[in-house]
């Protein structure tokens, strides 16, 4: 078996150690003897996403998000939308997540167009939502807690979309409705940095499994010893969630 990971705009969307998500996906495949290839997808990418099993988008600064927004609108958007509708697995963090929504409206009023696959919109606020975050999630029939770090001033509102989880500690999508992230088909958007996957290995494995299933049909992942990851997650939850 082989998993092809597409790292989208690695030179533009590369804030906050999100590269750790690629490291986690890669290692968790290698430990299971699943072959992995990581393709860098940037402004010069010419394919139509049929060569990719799992796509990753991180966050970037405002200027870089503008470049990405233009590139999606003018070049890659159509093919990417088709691939997503066909079941491409996508993990999008923070800025990358916002870009999959319909638009981002800054505090000053200017609008940055998104891909529009998520029925969600984001509006700038003058309060930065920074801090540790704990959510409870129910993905692919599994119920578990996730821990991470959020850092955004955009407030995201979902329109009849399923959130990734419910906020226990922190702000999540907007600091108002207790939702965090978004799920649509095999697309997962979230504000969780940390990076999110190494400390939440259940989530990492769901992404790997979903992507491989689309390619190979039935897939069962060999269980790994995640006691260190779980110990880390539990100690943080214990620290942050005051009873």
């Amino acid at each position: 078996m082989k998993l092809v990971i597409g790292h989208m705009y690695p030179d533009l969307l590369n804030l906050y150690g999100d590269i750790g998500n690629i490291v986690a996906l890669k290692k968790r495949c290698e430990w299971r003897k699943i072959e992995v290839e990581v393709k860098q997808i940037s402004l010069d990418y010419k394919e139509n996403f049929t060569d990719i099993d799992l796509l990753f988008l991180g966050g970037g600064s405002d200027r870089e998000q503008k470049i990405v927004s233009d590139d999606l609108k003018n070049k890659k958007g159509k093919n990417l939308k088709t691939a997503i509708k066909d079941g491409l697995t996508v993990l999008a963090i923070c800025g990358g997540y916002q870009l999959l929504g319909e638009y981002y409206q800054t505090l000053a009023g200017s609008k940055l167009e998104g891909l529009g696959v998520l029925k969600a919109w984001t509006i700038g606020s003058n309060r930065r939502m920074i801090g540790n975050i704990v959510i409870e999630t129910n993905v692919a029939g599994k119920n578990f807690k996730m821990v991470g770090f959020e850092n955004h001033s955009g407030k995201t509102f979902l329109v009849k979309m399923e959130p990734l989880g419910k906020v226990i500690i922190g702000n999540g999508n907007n600091g108002e409705d207790k939702t965090e992230g978004c799920i649509y088909k095999n697309v997962y958007g979230t504000y969780l940095h940390g990076p999110v996957l190494p400390k939440n290995p259940e989530f990492a494995d769901i992404l790997i499994e979903t992507a491989l299933k689309r390619k190979y049909g039935k897939v069962e992942l060999t269980p790994l010893d995640d006691s260190l990851e779980q110990q880390t997650k539990q100690s943080l939850i214990k620290r942050f969630v005051k009873k």
């Binding site: 906050y16 150690g17 750790g20 490291v23 920074i130 801090g131 770090f149 850092n151 940095h193 940390g194």
Partner: peptide
């Protein structure tokens, strides 16, 4: 800094 994500960079 409260965020330790940078260890992955």
């Amino acid at each position: 800094g409260r965020d330790v994500s940078w260890l992955w960079d």
